[in-house]
Amino acid sequence: MTQPILSVQNLTMHYATRKGDVSAVDDVSFDVMQGDALGLVGESGCGKSSIANCLLRLLPENARILQGAVRLDGANLTTLPEDQMRAYRWKRIAMVFQAAMNTLDPVYRVGDQIIEALHTHIETMTNAEARERVAELFKIVGLDPALMDRYPHEYSGGMRQRAVIAMALSCNPDVIIADEPTTALDVIVQDKLLREMCNIQKTLGMGMIYISHDIAVIAEVSNRMGVMYAGRLVELADTADIFARPQHPYTYALMSAFPSITGPKRELTTLPGEPPDLLNPPPGCRFHPRCPRATSVCARDVPAFKAMDARHSVACWHPVEG
């Protein structure tokens, strides 16, 4: 197996608030290989976006990375000085934001905003070269290059989203993080864009981390998939494998809450209870208060994240038998 291009190891991040520390990301580890599309799925507030922000270190002032490392090329991005970190942003890890609609600055032309990123990382690039590159990027994402001299408000939602993807691709990053980039779009445009994004990612061979609360979207875009619950990664495996054999009770519950069009007709089961308050997370396994399989050990000890086989890991004392 080749080296991972991006490796997250035991990442733990807290937000300091007046009421105490919010444990937003707790001991999360995963690797992204060349050409991998890793889907991260979980409920709102489970720490998916916090992980994304940790990778680029775009954290609010009250956020503290307590331990762990984000390794890229042997460098640890969690401890890099800010001015060196800047060189990694966009050039190595680019991001398509959650509210991609508002990612573009309203007062500058769309093309100029991409050119700005290019000029920041490739200082010797001339204007003509940069414009050529933007035209090329626009073609990749299916936009007319003539649109680069328009302002964001002249774009439709789908066009803006494409422009944002073009911007993320501009510096040929090793990894692209897509944080629910299509949530604001209607399902048809969403579906079309997802397919195109997958194609682009496969063609250019970069790694991708796709974050969504929508398991259907993850199923469509990713080949690897991580399930998050209350700040922890509870299961990580090949997407097909997770759908075939979910091992963590939470993953299992997620699957059962998800209707299948082609499969047999069945009642959808919902999970009772609510995700825990991360100010004061439950001891042991964070899922145990809602878990139908919980025993006393679950409330006492944190389950280790252990490999069931080479490509399937789960953090549970009583995994569902596949």
Binding site: R86, R89, W90, M95, F97, Q98, N102, P106, E116, T120
Partner: peptide, 21 residues
């Protein structure tokens, strides 16, 4: 605003994020 976050994500120096965006 999100575009300020995006400007930081693009790797722009702080003063550019602050002044230009």
């Amino acid at each position: 605003e999100d575009f300020v976050m995006a400007a930081r994500a693009k790797g722009l120096p702080d003063n550019v994020v602050r002044d230009k965006h």
